[in-house]
């Protein structure tokens, strides 16, 4: 295992209410950073101090037990977070628009369907900060609009830290931009500045 420093000797604060979009090349460690912020992985050195309710990393990967149905997975998560089970299940069912698939084992889901479920489920729980890994670029236009509207509706209460390849999504959601590169993270006010700062700007926007 070659050492790949995602963040090395960096200290930074993200204030409540700041919507941050993280840019970086494939393999720069964006997803790893999100997991460390969430507390799924612990950093080799240093600490992550959270003062608000932070979600799990919402994305395509993991988070659902394949042999359980969408509904059962929702029940599990509601219990873990100490939320009302019926309310969470109902909300996730309505939001994800999976229909009868909601009651089928999640291993039969396509990655798009998993992402819909993950997104609907996370919206059912009141987090202060949502950690979103690529997932908002999911589904058809109407679903994307729905996600956007849902976030807008809770902008007062919650913020988002987002990783995405798609500049347009990041621009839509975020007001602050960070570039993760070679163990450093830099923050920018506008996405243009962020992109311009990267040594390989054209590759960041691609994919």
């Amino acid at each position: 295992m070659g050492a790949n420093h995602v963040l090395n000797n960096v200290s930074c604060t993200i204030e409540a209410g700041q919507n941050v979009g993280i840019l970086g090349r494939n393999g720069a460690g964006k997803s790893t950073l999100l997991r460390i912020i969430a507390g799924v992985e612990s950093p080799d050195e240093g600490r992550v101090i959270r003062k608000s309710r932070v979600s799990w990393p919402i994305g395509f990967a993991g988070a659902f037990n394949g042999s359980l149905s969408g509904e059962e997975n929702c029940r599990f998560v509601a219990r873990v977070y100490g939320e009302s089970i019926d309310r969470v299940v109902e909300f996730a069912y309505d939001f994800s628009e999976l229909g009868d698939y909601f009651f089928a084992p999640t291993r039969t889901y396509s990655s798009g369907m998993k992402a819909r479920l993950a997104f609907g489920l996370s919206m059912a729980i009141d987090f202060d900060v949502y950690l979103v890994d690529e997932v908002t670029a999911v589904g058809d236009k109407p679903f994307q609009e729905k996600c956007k509207a849902a976030f807008k509706a809770r902008r007062e209460r919650s913020s988002v830290i987002m990783v995405s390849h798609q500049m347009t999504t990041i621009r839509d959601y975020c007001s602050m931009f960070a570039v993760l590169e070679q163990g450093h993270i830099r923050f920018y006010e506008t996405i243009e500045k962020a992109v311009a700062s990267t040594t390989s700007a054209e590759r960041v926007g691609a994919a």
Partner: peptide, 11 residues
């Protein structure tokens, strides 16, 4: 058998 559930930081 439960790797997927480790995505929730509490678990």
């Amino acid at each position: 058998g439960n790797k997927a559930l480790l995505f929730y930081p509490q678990v």
